[in-house]
Computed example of a mutant assay.
Amino acid sequence: MDFKKFLPWIIGIGLILIVAFWVIGINNTGLKKNQAVNKEWGNVETTYQRRNDLIGNLVNTVKGAADFEKSTLTAVIEARAKATSITVDPTNVTPEQLAAFNSAQSGVSSSLSKLLVSVERYPELKANQNFLDLQRELASTENQILTARTRFNEAVQDYNSYVLAIPQSWFLSYPEKPFFKSVDGANKPVEVKF
């Protein structure tokens, strides 16, 4: 049997198989990076959910102080409701969706900081152990939110760097994902008034 006449066919089939496995590898890696972004977004949502749960407990604790300002509590409750109504699909996230989500969460942060500042005028509330525990938990949760957002942005950077680079972009149809950005005015110092 003469292998020389089959050698071009063997080489051609071998090259086709190598290219096919290479393209499959590119697709699988893109899929893994996309899933990593989705997972990190889930972590972001989980930390915001934790904050929302803690805010509910904090509001109920503060309501116990009968003479506490109702308008401040109402602002926190409304901001929390607005923030929980906005959902983002991590598989098809757009910069506009992230901006709306970020804006709603910023409203929660703003109203929550006003609530905590106004508490300074209520010594019986400041001494309440439940309130102090919730304050500590909220501070811890804000740090977790920062960490989750940072990890999300790292996953997005890894994903975008992969799917937008050549030759992967020739074979993948994954869209570029936006980064989590700060809200407008976040670069200015916060003015706290007592």
Rank of each mutant, 00 (worst) to 15 (best):
S118D: 15
P8N: 05
L17V: 12
A148N: 04
N128K: 06
A79C: 04
F68M: 03
E142F: 07
A104D: 10
V62K: 10
Q129K: 12
G107T: 04
S173I: 02
W22Y: 14
S182W: 01
N28E: 11
A186Y: 14
E69L: 04
L146R: 12
P189Y: 07
Q135L: 10
Y174S: 11
I24F: 08
P123V: 12
N34A: 15
L138I: 13
K63Y: 01
N153Y: 07
K126I: 05
A127H: 04
P95A: 13
V93Y: 08
F194C: 05
I18P: 02
N60E: 15
R51T: 06
L15V: 15
W22C: 03
N57D: 06
Q157V: 06
N130C: 02
L146E: 13
S111R: 00
R151D: 09
V93D: 10
F101P: 00
R136T: 14
K188H: 11
D67A: 11
N43R: 00
E176W: 04
A79Y: 07
P8H: 02
G185Y: 13
R121T: 12
I86D: 01
L146A: 14
L15K: 07
I145E: 07
Q49H: 03
S169V: 08
V37G: 05
N143V: 01
D133T: 12
L132Q: 13
A65D: 00
V156F: 06
A20F: 13
S109T: 13
T47Q: 15
K32V: 11
I26S: 00
A65Y: 14
D53N: 14
Y162E: 12
D53L: 07
I86K: 07
D89Q: 06
A20G: 10
G25K: 00
T84M: 14
A165D: 12
V23H: 02
A104G: 07
I77T: 15
K126D: 07
I11P: 00
P95R: 08
L98P: 00
V190M: 07
N187K: 12
N128Q: 04
G42P: 01
K82I: 03
